[in-house]
Design a protein around this nucleic acid. Sequence first.
RNA 1: GCCCCCAUCGUCUAGCGGCCCAGGAUACCGCCCUUUCAAGGCGGCGACACGGGUUCGAAUCCCGUUGGGGGUACCA
Length: 476
Amino acid sequence: MPDAPVRVRIAPAPTGSLHVGNARTALYNYLFARHHGGAFILRIEDTDRVRSTDEAIQVVYESLHWLGIQWDEGPDVGGEFGPYRQSEKLTRYAEVTEVLRTGGHAYPCYCTPEELDERRKAAMAQGRSPGYDGRCRRLTEAERAELDAEGRPHAMRFAMPGEDLTVTDLIRGEAHFPAVDLQDFVIVRSDGSPTYMLAAAVDDADMAMTHVIRGEDLLPSTPRQLAIFRALGAEPPAYAHLPLIVGSDRQPLSKRHGSVAVETFRQDGFLPDALVNYLALLGWSYDEETTFFTRDELIERFDLSRVSHNPAAFDVEKLTWLNGHYLREAPDEALAAMFVDRLREAGVEADPEVVLAAVPVVKTRIKTLADVPGMLRFLFEDVEPDQKAAAFLGPERSEYLTEVVSRLEALEGWDHEAIKGTLDALREERGLSSKQGLHPVRAAITGALISPPLYESMELLGRDRSLERLRRAAGV
RNA sequence: GCCCCCAUCGUCUAGCGGCCCAGGAUACCGCCCUUUCAAGGCGGCGACACGGGUUCGAAUCCCGUUGGGGGUACCA
């Protein structure tokens, strides 16, 4: 198996958004494939037709594209192991079911959900394993014919081999499952549709997967899928189960913890590089100290043996910090383009030239792109001073601001150095602290007490508009 | 209930028998820098869940307890 070219996949169910947990699974599979020079496949698990829509599939594509995770085979790009949508493989699953049935590995089950539920409860009450008791497996052909004649609907169950099974996990080692807990499970529903257990195993076999890297929640399903592989006479892939991502309270990560969909992180102003770097580190580490990784470094260094075993709590604070780092590292031109887009989304039409000039002083002051409009809006439209700023703009500042205006009017040029010199001189003459001297000006120019650097802001705003705002604040 | 997985600072983690009275990052606190706010620099606080073993020696190995997570579906 180590000699076969690596083939791995991500198999999301299109339910409307791509969960970060799925995104991380996709990332690890992608990194593993690239590291080994293998193929990364995208498969859409849409056997549940009711919940699956084409729009939801588009969201999966877009989220993965945004993260920069490219797939080599998939519904949209094709490949020699297709189709890559389970809804297009229904006849294939039926075919396999027939093979299993003929080979004595599957049988019809006529038990109703109510009956199953009742027996399950009874088993649990007695401390026994709650799985299927195998009743219909013992039916004779004559009895089955009779039930069929009555028109009783049936599901198809897989007949487990009745022996203990061992899963060898690349991350965790061996897990042993006693036969008593491995009971016959449904592979085809009474409406004829295949279940996940069947479809996933058949696809992994059909698509020649060499490794299945997925969430730990699927570890208990592995012995069952292994049994299907064996019944089919197919070579099973190697398995690796990733620790789950939980919320700050150790509960499964869900919307009440904040953002969980990749699309939402994008809207919240996170950079794909930051999310990828963060996700890479959420359950994996390279060494004692390295925190930042480029894509190429991740591909070069990713290794399943360094994936951790315990559930990881998603920490937006750290993601946010990482995002700030990537924001500061990004080229100014690229940032300017993103800033302009953000401003437009916030209803602010910004001059790209001005935005580009503002990038250097702004990029150390934002944590996400969502902070941009609040930081730069004042450059492009008049803003009402907020409450704290207003406190520095009363009539009692009128004389001071008027003096500020006249000094600045006398200025030859209009650059931050000259502005600084002028305001410094005035402050010194009057014995004003920097706060006393600058707060009123800052309030007049930016409408807030917290803003990008004042002198640079005034240079960016331009002479005319700066003076106009100061005059208005002075009440002139 | 039963089965499986897991257990180092609040959080992400390094550690795979002596290099560890436990290292890095984040968060938090302080100082420096400073036109506000950040960024940056420096420093601080802070963890081996508990109990038994094994060993000259255990965060590291074994057993148990406790705790957390997952599964137990005609969801995936």
